[in-house]
Amino acid sequence: MRYSKSILFIILWVLSIDSALSQTVTYLGNEGMLIEYQGKKIIIDGLFDDISGRFDSPDYDVMDDIIAGRGEYKNVELALITHAHPDHFDAPSFARFMFNNKKAKMVATLQAIDSMKLNTDLYDSIANRIAVTRWTKGWQINDTEDIGIKSAYTLHAGKAFTKVQNQMFLITIGDKKILHVADTQMDVDYFDDLRLIYEDIDLAIVPFWFLTNLFGAEIVDKHIEAKKVAGMHLPNKDNEKTLEKINSFFPKATVFSEPGQKISF
């Protein structure tokens, strides 16, 4: 029995060290990500079910683990919501996540907040841990004690979505910076105004449409200048030509295409 306890202790110690040293982004589906660094864990979007079937959704067991704070998703301390579209955000799921994970905080748009108020009776019990970003131009700061969070509203791609409150995030953990661009329209002037080239970004996670043409390539290369680039929001069928274009413009880029896929930064 003594040896069994010793072995169990060693296994748990090794796992805790591995978690503390983890420096990864795990793809949950579409634009959903789990970011881990220096023992800190953040989810971006990641709780939803795309009923259209066009984009990857998180596995149901993964969603259950995130909501319950189990396994790999234990001690997630921050949830970031880019916008309230159903292929990014499910209000009841995120409300349950916040209710179950008492130390977690959230940064969300007003539209996402309104959706939680309308679709769940849990909002009042979690409201004091949610920062609502105002729909204004430029960076807004919502830092936690040890994680830097800057968010900026951007135009959602597509003329039909001009009234959607869509925000990108620049996350600083220790000496690392990760940019999540959300469903943003390719607007050179806007990216220039954000002055991202001065941020020394380690990883930029951008929608695939930024990686398939010269216009997007200009933004990624000249107005973001990240050390690593990853593509997201890729439809899950008939992608051969899109992947060929991405490879021609960004041969070193990673494209998230399989839930559970991990990359380091």
Results as ranks from 00 to 15, higher is better:
201 I>P: 01
135 W>I: 12
240 E>F: 07
3 Y>C: 01
77 E>N: 12
141 I>S: 12
46 G>D: 04
218 E>L: 07
3 Y>A: 10
76 V>E: 01
181 V>N: 04
223 H>L: 12
247 N>A: 06
224 I>H: 07
34 L>T: 12
104 A>K: 05
22 S>M: 08
109 T>C: 00
218 E>H: 14
132 V>I: 15
199 E>P: 07
17 I>M: 08
170 L>P: 02
187 D>N: 15
77 E>W: 01
142 N>A: 14
19 S>L: 08
189 D>K: 13
173 I>M: 03
66 I>Q: 02
243 L>M: 15
9 F>Y: 14
101 N>Y: 03
4 S>T: 13
73 Y>W: 06
100 N>C: 02
160 A>N: 12
180 H>N: 09
189 D>V: 08
47 L>C: 05
147 I>L: 07
130 I>L: 07
223 H>T: 09
246 I>Y: 01
216 G>P: 09
166 N>V: 04
217 A>I: 01
170 L>S: 08
218 E>F: 10
172 T>Q: 15
219 I>Y: 01
84 A>Y: 12
79 A>R: 04
39 G>V: 14
40 K>Y: 01
34 L>N: 11
261 Q>A: 00
35 I>K: 04
53 G>A: 13
52 S>N: 08
232 M>V: 15
132 V>F: 05
106 M>R: 00
78 L>Y: 10
202 D>N: 13
136 T>W: 00
10 I>R: 02
264 S>I: 12
128 N>L: 08
131 A>L: 00
26 T>N: 03
250 F>M: 06
29 G>S: 05
148 G>W: 02
192 D>V: 00
145 E>G: 03
256 F>K: 12
148 G>Q: 04
170 L>R: 09
162 T>M: 06
256 F>C: 09
57 S>R: 10
26 T>R: 13
155 L>I: 13
110 L>G: 05
129 R>F: 04
127 A>D: 13
29 G>N: 06
15 L>S: 03
128 N>D: 15
188 V>E: 07
17 I>W: 05
264 S>H: 11
91 A>K: 03
258 E>Q: 09
186 M>C: 00
154 T>W: 09
146 D>Q: 13
204 A>F: 10
56 D>L: 07
152 A>V: 09
